[in-house]
Design a protein around this nucleic acid. Structure first.
Length: 444
RNA sequence: CGGGGCGUGGCGCAGCUUGGUAGCGCGACGGUUUUGGGUACCGUAGGUCGUAGGUUCGAAUCCUAUCGCCCCGACCA
């Protein structure tokens, strides 16, 4: 993309409503524009990052054997009456009437709808296990939306639902989700720690929230410092292997890590040596949940077993806050000059800065680089505006592309351009070809 | 919903206490500069001050209502 033809409305000054750094930077970098309280338009740059995150989530869910689909944002109230949640959900659910005066709602989640689909089409244990998911906009009419996309009313969420024959099988689905989530977050350059969360009315140990540590997090968390040393890394886990998934769960959840909802100071002190006790703040970016037969019983979602008995299916639901992740990533990765995107989610792979726009050698070199990168499957953002060098650097730093190639007549006389890491700030001179090779390797 | 605050050119703000029909910076536009390092220089245009009532000779300024937005709290991915 050539910047002169793109739509990137960056701001020099920070709009006054933005209180936290991710919100400020998203507004300044021209990623979002507020449409109304807690509701945002996604401008091209923000939309691009949103799509990258969504893509990672899709890839990792499909890798885990989960099946993508899409359910609507608007739902009929009838299903929710059936589960009993139409009355339970309260003011947070946005209720709407259509022209025939039928009660509708903008879905805050999809347990009812998915269960309805399941019961209509699945009748036998032979069709299990089954995990369906989608990535769709949700609406929760928060009393007080804040922090930009971190707590919007409308937000994009991946929600997945597993259907299994019994509790053991459903717990394997739970473990599988945990593994796939660890992978997903690491690909986004995030460390998200699974923490024991509030079981809600169902109770039990079978829910974990994934928290990204950040000063601006809304939850207070308590954990054993050893947990931050754990890395999922490149390991290949067989998602069909019960013991392998179980082992990952045990590795990542055996140490003390809880949100304030479940924190127990006595247990904390008993289990964790004082030197390793940490309290911090965290941003919740996902949650996994096994809830048994709560919905299948209420909504009569049953299957016939191999002995001919009809039993309610065991279910769980598993969510990743996709739009919130943009905020979480920025909170975890920025400096005073702007955003620093991890390579996994960057909107463009590298920026090309032409130091002397209008200089025929520099212009030609930039064009050449641009085309060569595109040919290699890289997506560069070429700043071809007639701006001064400083203005171009400031824009690149603000929008946070992890790599920048700087091109000017002086370097070109020596046959070199400069490759700069946004994160470290370090620059290295090399030939344009070498720079492309390096980037191809990084993004390989 | 309880408490606090704010709505003034696209954005950030001043003016309001002590009414006399708006001002600054950024941006935009036009021109200049052909430009090598952190957002150039000069100039121009652009606002009946959220909205509706009221008080007054006169309202951005005072009063009432209303809408919107932000912050703290309770609630949530």
């Amino acid at each position: 993309m050539r910047l002169s033809r793109y739509f990137l409305p960056v701001l020099k000054e920070t709009p006054s409503e933005a209180q936290i750094v991710s919100h400020r930077l998203m507004l300044r970098a021209g990623m979002i524009k507020q449409a109304s309280a807690g509701i945002y338009s996604w401008l091209p740059l923000g939309f691009k990052v949103l799509r990258r995150i969504e893509q990672i989530v899709h890839e990792e869910q499909i890798r885990a054997g989960h099946i993508p689909m899409l359910m609507p944002t608007l739902q009929s109230a009838d299903l929710w009456r059936e589960s009993g949640r139409y009355d339970d959900y309260g003011q947070e659910m946005l209720r709407i009437k259509d022209r025939h005066d039928r009660d509708m709602l903008y879905g805050p989640t999809n347990e009812e709808l998915i269960t309805d689909i399941f019961r209509a089409h699945v009748n036998s244990y032979k069709d299990l296990p089954l995990t369906l998911y989608h990535i769709q906009w949700k609406f929760r009419d928060e009393i007080r939306p804040r922090f930009g996309v971190m707590r919007g009313r409308e937000f994009l969420m991946k929600d997945g639902y597993n259907f299994d024959i019994d509790k053991d099988a459903a717990l394997h689905a739970y473990n599988r989700h945990l593994v796939s989530y660890l992978r997903s977050y690491e690909r986004m350059g995030l460390q998200a720690i699974p923490m024991r969360a509030d079981g809600g009315p169902i109770g039990g140990d079978y829910t974990h929230e994934f928290l990204v540590l950040a000063e601006t997090g809304e939850s207070e968390v308590f954990y054993d410092s050893e947990i931050t040393d754990l890395k999922f890394g490149d390991r290949a886990v067989d998602y069909d292997s019960v013991p392998e998934c179980q082992a990952v769960l045990e590795e990542f959840t055996s140490r003390y890590a809880r949100t304030d909802e479940t924190h127990d100071a006595a247990v904390f002190e008993a289990q964790v040596p004082e030197a390793r006790r940490r309290s911090a703040r965290g941003i919740e970016v996902g949650q996994i949940f096994y809830f048994g037969t709560k919905y299948s019983e209420a909504m009569n979602a049953t299957v016939v077993t191999d002995t001919g008995a009809r039993v309610p299916v065991h279910m769980g639901s598993h969510g990743i806050g996709v739009s919130r992740l943009l905020g979480a990533i920025i909170e975890a990765s920025h400096d005073e000059r702007g955003i620093i995107w991890p390579e996994g989610v960057t909107p463009f792979h590298a920026g090309i800065v032409n130091l002397k726009q209008g200089d025929s050698a520099a212009d030609a070199a930039c064009e050449g680089l641009y085309k060569a990168m595109v040919a290699k499957g890289l997506e560069p953002l070429y700043d071809d505006r007639s701006e001064r060098a400083g203005a171009k650097f400031a824009t690149m730093d603000l929008i946070g592309l992890p790599w920048r190639i700087t091109v000017g007549p002086r370097g070109l006389e020596k046959g070199v351009v400069e490759l700069t890491s946004r994160r470290s700030g370090e620059s290295e001179e090399m030939s344009p070809e070498a720079a492309i090779d390096r980037l191809t390797q990084i993004y390989g």
